[in-house]
């Protein structure tokens, strides 16, 4: 009597399926990236722990010598694994980066809250006053709006230039994208928002770099 059909087990059928060339390349790329990240993690944190732990153990008179010794040992282990068997660092790195991410979110939450209440709220109050009742966030109780149409003329956008389509490097520097963003807001007349935007974009860039770095937890602590 054959067993009941198990729809969750798909290994045999999956072996038959072939992945597209694009997906095979993606798999290879992801594998290489992961290998590189694990090696970087092992070497960066390994050197940091080894040097810091070694320095404090040898040169600083401290009551927690055992701690510095452990740190140095952990550093040496990480250096060894990062060089020889980076695959074993998969879970340590995930845990480390998870902590970095959490820390990043916390720092971001605090900074964004400060920017929101310190800068955006007063600017928002000013902007609402400037616009009178004409801003689009209508709310009413008894006096219904008197507007008779909601249609607004659509700003005409010019077609994208295709010059240099292939030649232009898609990975433009973040600085040029940063400038483009500020220019866009300036062109649309949002001068009031520019200082806020400058601050937010800088915060975003720091978070962007730091989220992908093994040094993240230290940078946040220093910051």
């Amino acid at each position: 009597m054959p067993n009941g059909f198990n729809a969750l087990n798909s290994t045999e059928a999956n072996q038959v399926l072939t992945r597209s060339r694009y997906l095979r390349r993606l798999d290879e790329r992801r594998e290489t990236d992961e290998f590189r990240q694990l090696t970087n993690f092992g070497l960066t944190i390994g050197w940091l722990f080894t040097l810091l732990g070694g320095f404090c153990w040898f040169c600083v008179i401290s009551q927690i010598d055992w701690f510095w010794r452990m740190m140095m040992t952990a550093g040496l282990v990480l250096l060894f694994l990062g060089t020889v068997l980076p695959q074993l660092l998969y879970w340590p790195r995930r845990l480390w980066m998870g902590l970095a991410h959490l820390q990043g979110r916390l720092v971001m939450t605090v900074l964004l809250t400060v920017v929101y209440f310190g800068l955006m709220s007063p600017l928002g109050w000013w902007e609402r006053r400037r616009r009178g009742g004409s801003h689009p966030f209508y709310s009413w109780d008894t006096n219904r709006p008197t507007l008779t149409t909601g249609w607004e003329t659509l700003p005409q956008t010019t077609p994208d230039s295709i010059a240099g389509d292939v030649q232009q490097n898609g990975s433009r520097s973040l600085v040029s994208l940063f400038a483009e963003t500020l220019m866009f807001f300036a062109e649309r007349g949002h001068y009031l928002l520019l200082p806020v935007l400058l601050l937010l974009l800088m915060l975003g860039m720091i978070l962007f770099f730091v989220q992908t770095s093994a040094l993240a937890p230290f940078i946040y602590t220093i910051g």
């Binding site: 928002g124 902007e127 966030f137 807001f185």
Partner: peptide
């Protein structure tokens, strides 16, 4: 992004 920023600006301090 402009829409998001203008929305947060015009509705502050309710949009945290």
């Amino acid at each position: 992004f402009e829409r998001l920023m203008m929305t947060y600006l015009l509705t502050a301090p309710r949009g945290l």
